[in-house]
Computed example of a mutant assay.
Amino acid sequence: MINAADLPDTIPVFPLPGALLLPRAQLPLHIFEPRYLAMIEDVLKTPTRLIGMVQPYDGPGRANQLHTIGCAGRLTSFSETEDGRYMITLSGASRFRIAQEVEGFAPYRRCDVRWSGFERDLGGAEKDEGFDRAAFMDALGRFFEDQGLKTDWESLGEADDELLINSLSMLCPFEPEDRQALLEAPSLTTRRETLTTLMEFALRGGSGEEMMQ
């Protein structure tokens, strides 16, 4: 486990639309672009092996802009294919806030970041007090049926609150801006409430854009 004192001031960032990483969750990634292959090789030489996952903005006039809040993951699994691609797994460590992008000679993007405000991310699993699991699972079942999704319901039923909510937040087919809202939720309870709202809107044929209006 990474301690707050070990968190670096500058980290490489991987802007990947639709990819969501949350603290204490795992995100598998397939790396093949040369700039990100170089990033992985450099990260493996650092003591913390942290990579910041961050959503780029989508839309005219916002080219290359990044959302302010992302989540750093520690590179905990690494393998190389015969044709030179990397298969990695990031384990979510802590969210961060981008202070500024760092100019330099690296082919990938790097940012100065601030970790304050996300101290809870470095602790143990969160609890969702007052979680009505039966009602949530009923809504989830209707959402999966509507979306044509399948899952291992037995495993979901046995998962603890944080694993259940965070895994669904990462895996459900939401728009990037909706995923950003899930990332920025200040607690597990508010993330579950946001997740439930997104599922309900989808079931009514709505969208995250309508929800924001």
Rank of each mutant, 00 (worst) to 15 (best):
V13H: 13
P15A: 09
L16R: 00
G18V: 05
L20T: 04
A25R: 14
A25P: 06
P28D: 01
L29R: 01
P34Y: 05
Y36L: 01
A38K: 06
A38E: 04
V43H: 04
L44N: 10
G52M: 05
Q55E: 01
Q55K: 05
P56W: 01
D58T: 13
R62L: 13
H67V: 02
C71V: 06
E82S: 12
G84L: 03
R85S: 08
M87Q: 15
M87I: 13
I88R: 04
T89N: 13
S91L: 08
S91T: 07
S94K: 09
R97T: 06
I98A: 07
V102A: 07
E103D: 14
P107S: 04
Y108W: 08
Y108D: 06
R110M: 04
C111I: 07
R114T: 11
S116P: 12
R120E: 14
D121E: 02
G124K: 01
A125I: 14
D128N: 11
F131Y: 15
D132Q: 02
D132A: 07
R133Y: 00
A134G: 10
A135P: 10
A139L: 12
L140D: 03
G141R: 04
G141S: 04
F144T: 13
D146F: 15
K150L: 12
T151K: 07
G157R: 00
E158M: 11
D161K: 10
L163G: 14
L164T: 00
L164Y: 02
N166M: 05
S167N: 03
L168M: 01
M170N: 00
P173D: 07
P176S: 03
E177M: 10
L182M: 08
L183Y: 04
E184T: 01
A185M: 05
A185C: 07
T189L: 10
T194C: 00
T197H: 08
T197Q: 15
T197N: 12
L198Y: 15
F201C: 15
F201W: 11
L203N: 10
R204C: 12
R204Y: 02
R204I: 09
R204Q: 12
M211K: 07
M212D: 13
Q213A: 15
